[in-house]
Simulated assay, not measured.
Amino acid sequence: MKPTWDIFCTVVDNYGDIGVTWRLARQLVAEHGMAVRLWVDDLQAFLRLCPQLDPGAAQQWQQGVEIRHWPATWPGAEPAQVVIGAFACQLPDGYVQAMAQQPTPPLWLNLDYLSAEDWVQGCHGLPSPQANGLRKYFFFPGFTEQTGGLLREASLLPRCQALRQTPGERERFLGGLGVQPQQGARLISLFAYENPQLGNWLDVLAADAQPTHLLVPQGRILGDLGAWLGTAQLPVGALHRRGGLTVQVLPFVSQDDYDRLLWSCDFNAVRGEDSFVRAQWAGVPMLWHIYIQQENAHWDKLEAFLVLYREGLSPAAGQALVELWRAWNMDRPMGQAWAALQPHWDEVREHARQWQAAQAARPDLATRLVQFYRNSL
């Protein structure tokens, strides 16, 4: 019998939470032979990532994963052997009671948000005894050996390499999105939250002697983009040129196609957690728009990652990279920071490749979760 896993996901920010849990569920099934149920409270948001999904079905199977709608009124279900509450979501009371009644209690894991902060290493894997006698363990994704690793399917980097090395493959993929970049243009993807610094950055790109082709999938940044372009109408396929900058609006693509988009670009601006990790696997320079928290608590998380990520860069290149990320996330002059990074472009590009290789040398998140489960037996 295959070990059974239940993953619970509350969709908080449209796609980040479900994006991570959907990738994880598929990998546990495909690579580790687990039987996985993914409980999701918002199937409509899930539909954007999995177009084959039936948003009205209480139960269905997609890519080997059993998808269950998690309604406000708990329908009841026998607990799995491994139970994951993603991102501190609260499991149904009835389910927790059923867990406590099992002859062998399930392994209960709280899969937390990704962070590079120092305290994460000390908390990863620790138990949290519950009043009903169950134990819940903290499981933190991360960038060091003392954490739970990053999501990475076994085929991910080989597929990235194949797209880049197979003649015409990159062009075929971009052509399928209606993208035909001009010769010598720097290709940049932009997926971000609202940002007042966007116009300042675009002004510099438009004035640059090197042409830039900016690819913007549908999302929250389109309002700021439209304000800079002077239009409220930015349908999919919209193409605008200003100086050396070409701006093109793309459709909201599947997870696999978003990976291919990141692999196809020379620079990726990403947001949240799922896209942030995928951009690191692309191995090219990147910019992270971190999810905003009250009282700017997210800045500590940003700075903690930058401490790790800048290791190996020269002081000048490291400082330029840090100032770019701070400008984007702290409402500072973005155009000035972008211009200051350009003299260090080759070094930052090589550093992105080295970071990708270093992270790929560590076990991935799904593998570490399975190891944790087997060690608990």
Results as ranks from 00 to 15, higher is better:
residue 234 L to T: 05
residue 106 P to T: 04
residue 169 E to T: 11
residue 210 Q to S: 11
residue 127 P to Y: 12
residue 287 L to Q: 08
residue 114 L to S: 03
residue 293 Q to S: 10
residue 51 P to R: 06
residue 376 S to R: 08
residue 310 R to L: 13
residue 207 A to S: 10
residue 319 Q to T: 11
residue 175 G to K: 00
residue 160 C to Q: 15
residue 246 T to K: 04
residue 282 A to H: 01
residue 365 L to S: 03
residue 99 M to V: 04
residue 343 P to W: 07
residue 308 L to F: 11
residue 371 Q to N: 13
residue 243 G to C: 10
residue 321 L to R: 02
residue 362 R to E: 12
residue 310 R to G: 11
residue 314 S to I: 02
residue 202 L to Q: 05
residue 353 R to H: 12
residue 21 T to G: 00
residue 224 D to Y: 01
residue 108 W to Q: 03
residue 220 R to E: 14
residue 177 L to Q: 06
residue 11 V to S: 03
residue 276 F to R: 04
residue 66 E to K: 05
residue 266 D to F: 01
residue 369 L to D: 05
residue 327 A to M: 07
residue 24 L to P: 03
residue 238 A to N: 09
residue 341 L to F: 08
residue 107 L to R: 03
residue 134 L to I: 06
residue 68 R to D: 04
residue 321 L to M: 13
residue 321 L to E: 14
residue 15 Y to R: 08
residue 212 T to G: 03
residue 6 D to I: 02
residue 376 S to P: 03
residue 89 C to R: 01
residue 168 G to L: 09
residue 252 F to H: 10
residue 243 G to T: 08
residue 213 H to T: 11
residue 98 A to E: 14
residue 160 C to N: 15
residue 324 L to R: 02
residue 338 W to L: 13
residue 161 Q to D: 15
residue 203 D to S: 07
residue 220 R to M: 07
residue 96 V to D: 11
residue 107 L to A: 05
residue 264 S to Q: 04
residue 7 I to V: 11
residue 249 V to P: 07
residue 222 L to G: 03
residue 248 Q to I: 08
residue 363 P to R: 06
residue 173 F to S: 09
